[in-house]
Amino acid sequence: MKMFYFFTVLALLPITNYSWANHSDFKIFRALDSETPPANIAVSKNGRVFMSTHQAYGSPHKMIELLADGSFTPYPEKAFFPPLNGVLGAIVDEKDILWFLDTIWGEDALGRVIGWDTKNEKLYKIFYITRPIVNQVVYFE
């Protein structure tokens, strides 16, 4: 049995209308199966929709773009080394740079904040994050 996930988007409502719990006020944006379980959603200024997939369901895709025709494509097309492991957070800034945090597990416990230029379809910047190391315990009285 396939699991389906539904994105709902609030319809434009007057600010004084608090009846948003009524299901008629919502619109289904996209239905997805277990191959693309939703996690973090980011939308560009021109309406492109990017989404990371939830790590707990073992999706082969870590980040995707939801296309207007109802399909999706792995995103970005660039092969990273090491490959994307698990994306925890995504946002598109005012310059249409898609920023996402990729977690990397292992002895070094590195993570990366990756900035991908969605206009020019190229890598913008990577910030590497290392695990903090505590050498001693400090006690406060």
Rank of each mutant, 00 (worst) to 15 (best):
L12I: 11
L110S: 13
A42C: 10
V43M: 13
K125Q: 14
G115T: 02
V92G: 09
L88R: 13
V134R: 11
L32P: 05
D117E: 03
Y128G: 00
T73L: 10
N85G: 15
L67Q: 15
Q136I: 03
I126D: 07
V138R: 10
E65W: 05
H54I: 00
E141D: 14
F26C: 04
L110T: 14
W116V: 01
G47K: 07
L123T: 12
G70I: 02
I104V: 14
S44C: 08
H54W: 06
D96W: 01
V113C: 09
F29G: 11
P74Q: 04
W99Y: 12
H54F: 12
Y124L: 00
T73F: 01
V92S: 08
D33M: 02
E121R: 07
I97C: 08
L13A: 12
Y124S: 09
E121L: 09
I91N: 06
T8R: 05
G111N: 14
A11T: 12
D102N: 15
N135G: 12
N40Q: 04
L84K: 07
S52W: 02
A109R: 11
L123A: 07
E77C: 01
D108G: 09
L101R: 02
Y57H: 05
Y18K: 09
V87Q: 03
D69S: 05
G86M: 09
K27I: 14
H23K: 06
G111S: 15
F81Q: 14
V113D: 06
K122Y: 00
M3G: 13
L13R: 14
S34L: 10
P82R: 02
H23D: 10
V137K: 13
M1L: 12
S34V: 04
P14Y: 00
L123G: 07
L88S: 08
P82T: 08
W99P: 11
N17L: 05
A39I: 00
V92W: 06
V87F: 02
T36P: 03
L10T: 06
H61G: 02
L13P: 04
G86S: 15
H61I: 06
L10V: 00
F50I: 09
N40S: 14
I126C: 07
D25F: 09
G106F: 03
M51E: 12
I114E: 01
K78G: 05
K27V: 14
A79P: 04
R48A: 15
L67K: 15
